[in-house]
Simulated assay, not measured.
Amino acid sequence: MERVRIRRELMDYLLELARDFYPNEFAGFLRERDGVFEEVLIAPDPHFGRGSAFFNPWMLPHDESVKGTVHSHPGPNPRPSGADLSFFSKFGGVHLIIAYPFVEESVRAYGSDGRELPIEIVD
């Protein structure tokens, strides 16, 4: 994947979620339709703490439209941690990190190999 395409409404909602959960992290799964991320799914019974977010992916129904993940960092660093990179390599797809102060400029996208990908917002 060369670029990550995401609907404006979803981007705005993800930023709002990050602000609402602050100072804790939040995490979810991203649904894609026709090459554009359009929805987020929050796994049942998640744990969102100040230094990590945990959810059991086995709690989600099988959904072939899930092509990525998203999580927030309560600090200003949008770079993936070692734990993030390990998760990326196991889950695959696209991974968004939303860093404090939770504005569009603090969102980064990464491939499963940890390589940063450009983001395109579509209306």
Rank of each mutant, 00 (worst) to 15 (best):
L96R: 04
P76N: 06
H95F: 03
A99T: 02
K67G: 07
G35M: 11
H73M: 03
S112D: 12
T69M: 10
A109M: 08
R115T: 13
G92P: 11
F54W: 08
S65L: 08
F21C: 12
G82F: 04
L117C: 10
S65A: 14
F91Y: 11
H71S: 09
S65Q: 02
P101Y: 07
V107C: 13
E9R: 14
S52D: 09
R115I: 04
R108K: 15
V107I: 14
E38R: 13
Y100K: 10
D20C: 00
T69E: 00
P74S: 10
R115K: 15
G111T: 05
S86K: 10
Y110W: 05
F21V: 00
F91H: 14
V66I: 15
L41R: 12
E16L: 11
S81K: 01
G51Q: 10
G28Y: 01
I42A: 06
Y100M: 00
G75K: 08
L15S: 12
V36Y: 15
T69W: 02
V36H: 12
P44Y: 03
E39N: 08
P74I: 01
R5H: 12
V70E: 02
H73T: 04
R108I: 01
D113G: 08
K90E: 15
P80S: 02
F87A: 15
A18N: 05
M11V: 13
P74E: 08
G82Y: 06
P118M: 02
